[in-house]
Design a protein around this nucleic acid. Structure first.
Lengths: 156, 156
DNA sequence: TATTGTTATACTCTATAACTATA
DNA sequence: TATAGTTATAGAGTATAACAATA
């Protein structure tokens, strides 16, 4: 095509032809939905992520969590502070390495995580409603394949 | 499952089972890739989006653009200021409604958009490399279907 | 010396409200 | 009165650097 012109694009939504644009906007929409679903529990999506990780693996330090979730360690401090202040988890010094914390959900934290999981799965199911179960599984698989080479991100 | 406990999850990546989490992180990764690809042109992804929209439809006002791109109108002002200052587009008052601006790419803007399009498509192709062409088309279609009910977002 | 967690702080980003000019 | 665009500014969110405790 000539250097003097840009090809005419369909007026409707020229950006919708870019898969990348769709993925970015879909990510934003999905995050907004998750935040709205968790708001009644006074939780942010990050709280849910941290609690889910801690519930699955007690041996994770705060910096392990930062790395796996792609958050700055200083943000993790504030997040864990908040969850601890609200009685959802406890910090205990690791016996093997007393610089590290071992994080552990309290019973209240486990109950809250369970409720959060319920609303998250409900929201997710609404978001995925336009897809049949085969398509939903396919999307899950494709997204996972695309993400794998880039996650966790190397912190700048 | 009992209220006193949360089901044991695979330690590897408990969040990866949530499609929503994958979509959010994939969106973040995709945006980061786009920003990195455009950085040598001194453009942000938003610049590219605005220029693409303006190239496709000259009749869009700044608030039309804000709405379609999901950005606050005040952010659009700064964006258009920047593009105008760099000689990539011009503001002209609409004849039909002199409150509105009609935005128009300059020849330099068209050339820059063309170069931006090249690097964006290159980056997109790298991102999608793990998929064959059928899968890539499928992802495009599924993402579009999921996004449609939620876009553009109703500004809070 | 290096690492975990922490604090203080500066920086970016965004949204809010108030204004003007046009309608 | 309402709308398009603008400005100033406050608020949220983030990252940077420096520090204490431990390895």
């Amino acid at each position: 095509m000539p250097a003097t012109g840009v090809p005419a694009a369909p007026a409707g939504q020229p950006l919708a032809q870019h898969t990348g644009y769709l993925l970015i906007k879909l990510g934003e929409v999905t995050l907004a939905i998750a935040e709205r679903a968790l708001a009644p529990l006074n939780l942010r999506a990050r709280h849910f992520n941290v609690m889910t990780m801690v519930a699955a693996d007690i041996t994770l330090s705060q910096q392990d969590l930062s790395g796996q979730l792609g958050l700055d360690p200083t943000i993790m401090v504030a997040l864990v502070d908040d969850l601890e202040r609200r009685g959802f988890l406890r910090r205990e010094r690791s016996q093997k390495d007393r610089r590290r914390y071992v994080l552990q959900l309290t019973p209240a934290g486990q109950r809250t995580l369970q409720r959060a999981l319920t609303v998250i799965e409900e929201a997710e199911s609404k978001l995925l409603a336009p897809l049949n179960s085969h398509e939903a599984g396919l999307l899950q698989e494709l997204a996972g394949r695309l993400l794998a080479p880039h996650w966790p991100p190397r912190h700048t």
